[in-house]
Structures are given as structure tokens and as C-alpha cells.
Simulated scan of single mutants.
Amino acid sequence: MKTIVQKKLYHVDSRGYYGSFGGAFIPEMLYSKIEELRENYLSIIAEPSFQKEYNDLLHNYVGRPTPLYRANRLSTKYKTNIFLKREDLCHTGAHKVNNTIGQILMAKKLGKKRVVAETGAGQHGVATATVCALMNIECIIYMGEIDIERQAPNVARMKMLGAEVRPATSGSRTLKDATNEAMRHWITNCAGTHYIIGSVVGPHPCPDMVARFQSIISEEIRWQLKVQTGKETPDYVVACVGGGSNAAGAFYHFLDDEDVKLVAVEAAGQGISSGYSAATTVLGKPGVLHGSHTILMQTADGQVMEPSSISAGLDYPGIGPQHAYLFDSGRGTFMSATDDEAIQAAFELTRFEGIIPALESSHALAVLGKLSASEHDNVIVNLSGRGDKDMATYMKYIY
């Protein structure tokens, strides 16, 4: 008798799960808002009028498609074919705007008059403030007190765009705490408020909704790579992961192509065993964080551990539930890069290719020498953001 092997499904199922990860673990006060999203998001996204406006804004406002650039000098050094997906060239300077454009249109369809969001590195905050200004919608951004200090240029941009920036002063005063505050605000101000979550985290349907809006990244990679190489599937797709929205977008249209190696790079901070790290898959275990069952760093009694990274956008103690399943199933390869490795990779790209990357993206670049790529392989690195916001950090290593 022939054994039938059922193919693994890497997208969300009808219950809101990726394998055993996902779901919606939420307080009763938030139930109606999550149900409103769950019942409507797929039909709204599928509406021809939504698609027309979304795609028009991506093209004429965001500047898509972003280039797929062959990094010739990096390719020579690492003896393989390295392509950079230039999300740093999006309006606002990062991939985040792909999601905020989609979500602000979702908010309008649902009749919302106010938006709340969280931000770490400030790129999601800027992208949210940008679309709120575009659509004339009130905007409140929660940001960790420490991140407000180390990402001052983005704070100024948010305020110039008309957003109210509220500091998160509890815990580590970084991304985790900003997310806590944004969710509390959403719970207590449900009526008329839409939460534009910035990553593939949170209760279902948030991770799937964000991944769908970011999937434009891998959709473009497929046809761009075919134009340049004659083959639409690469051998490797490499992206940094905090919560993981840029990686989710870069992986999305390759999930079922088992020959494509999906490489997620976490922040090892000062070293995985140093006590100052954000390498979730190495240090974490299954649990519930911000409304979903995922993998997160936690103490023996279940308390969330404080993460640490030079990169504000990767300074998060968990990963999105889809990434947790990619790790658990073996479909994704999870690696990590230290603060020092990320800095070195940032300067290497800058001086090899004349492109200054965000510190988040630098973590993905840092593993190029650790891949087993051949000279014939095509390696895509998702350059998720530009380094303007990180110049104060980079300057410390110049002088």
C-alpha cells in the first residue's frame, strides 16, 4: 500500500494557527474588535476597489516595485550571487509602509477615526504617522523611552507628521513595552480605534493580515529574479527577524518551494549566553506573548525576559507565530548575529556597495559568510530599511 505524505501547510489555517502556534489569547474586552477584523479582513482585501487603491498607492506613493540589485563586490567576496531587495528605497525608508498603507485602508473600510500603533526603531511609527497624515486620521504612537532616545530622528519625523508620541516607561522601555501600552490603549479605547500592529505578532488575524500586506516583497522578487537570471526561485532568502514582518513578506511566496532555503537572522546582542540577547529560538520556549501562542524568551516561572540588541527593531523577546512554526517544523533556518557582527556587516555593505543599511538589516547581512552557498547559487537578502535613523550609533564606530 502506498503511503500518502501530507504536505505541510505553512500559511495560517482556518482556526488562526500555524501548526500549534498562533490563535487569539485576548481579554474579553477586545474580543469584539478581533472578531470584527477576523470576519472582514479577507473579504475587504479581496475587494476590487481595495486592491485598486492599495496597488495604486504602492506604486505612486510608496515607489514600488523596489529594485532587486545584484551586489557585485559582495558577490565576489562571498563567491556567490548576492541580490539585495531594496526595501530601504520605499517611501519612509523601510518595508513598514507596505503594511501601514494596507491597514489604513482597512481602518477606513471599517469606519475607524483613530489609529494607535507601537514602534521600536521608529520605522513603523513613521510609516503609520505618514499614512494617518495622508488620510487625515488621528494617530497615537507608543515608543519605549530608551528607543525615543536612540531613535531621535524618527521621533522628530513622527511629530512633524502630526502623530502624538507617547513614551512607554515600564520594563525595559523598548519595543515589548511599547506593544504592551498600545494594546492596553486599544482595549480601553475600542470604539472607533484601529490598532495598526507593526509586525507579524499579536492575536489572529493580525499576523496573517500583516504578512499578506508584506507579501508584495516576495511577489516582486519572483519576477525580478526571473528577468535577471531566468529563474524565479532563489536558492536562499535571508532576512532579519524580531517580530518578523520583513521576513514574512520576503518568505511568503516561497513557503511551498521546499528547495528555497529560508534563513531568519535574530539578534544575539552581546552574545547568546551573555544575558543580553534577543535570540528567541535559542533562548526561548513556547508560551503566550501579546495575544498569540509562539516562542518567547521567558524565565522558569513564565515571566517574559528582557531582550537586548543594538537594533531597536529587533529588541523583542519573541517571534511571530508563523516564524515559530517555520523554526519548529524545520522549514526555516534560524541563525543569529551579535551587535558587533551587525556593525561590521553594516560598514562592509556601505564601503563595498555605497548603501548604508538599517541596523536591523545589518543582522541579515552578517550571516553571508556562514551560508553554504555555491558560486552558482542566488542569495536574496531583504534590505528592510535604510540607515539614516542609526547614524548616531554608527558614528560611535567612526571616531
Rank of each mutant, 00 (worst) to 15 (best):
M1I: 07
I4E: 10
V5G: 03
Q6L: 13
Y10I: 00
H11F: 01
V12Y: 00
S14F: 02
S14M: 07
R15L: 14
G19A: 02
G22S: 00
G23H: 08
P27S: 12
P27G: 05
E28W: 03
L30K: 12
I34H: 00
L37W: 06
R38N: 12
S49D: 14
F50S: 03
Q51N: 07
N55V: 03
L58D: 00
H59Q: 10
N60E: 14
Y61V: 06
T66W: 01
L68I: 09
A71V: 07
N72G: 13
T76K: 15
K79P: 04
N81P: 14
L89F: 11
T92M: 08
K96D: 03
K96Y: 01
I101H: 03
I101E: 02
L110P: 08
V116N: 02
V116M: 02
V116C: 13
A121K: 06
H124P: 06
T130W: 00
M143L: 06
E149S: 13
E149Q: 14
R150N: 10
R150E: 09
Q151A: 10
A152W: 13
N154S: 12
K159Q: 15
M160F: 14
A163Y: 05
V165N: 05
P167W: 13
G171T: 09
R173C: 14
D177A: 04
A178C: 11
N180Y: 08
N180W: 06
E181W: 05
M183C: 03
M183P: 02
M183K: 04
W186G: 01
T193V: 14
Y195C: 02
P203H: 00
P203F: 00
C206I: 15
D208R: 00
M209A: 01
F213R: 02
E219F: 11
I221L: 09
L225N: 05
T229I: 06
E232F: 07
V238E: 09
C240G: 07
G243M: 10
A248F: 00
D256V: 02
V263H: 08
Y276S: 13
A279D: 08
T281I: 07
L283I: 10
G284H: 03
H290A: 12
H293G: 01
I295M: 07
A300Q: 14
D301H: 12
D301A: 06
G302S: 14
Q303R: 12
V304F: 08
M305E: 15
E306A: 14
S309L: 13
A312P: 10
L314E: 09
Y316S: 05
H323S: 06
S329D: 09
S329F: 06
T333Q: 11
D339Q: 02
D340H: 10
Q344S: 14
A346W: 01
A346Q: 01
F347H: 13
T350C: 13
T350N: 11
E353R: 09
G354N: 10
G354P: 09
I355R: 08
P357W: 05
P357N: 08
S361N: 12
S362R: 04
K370H: 14
K370S: 15
I380R: 08
I380C: 05
L383N: 05
A392Y: 05
T393G: 02
Y397D: 06
I398H: 01
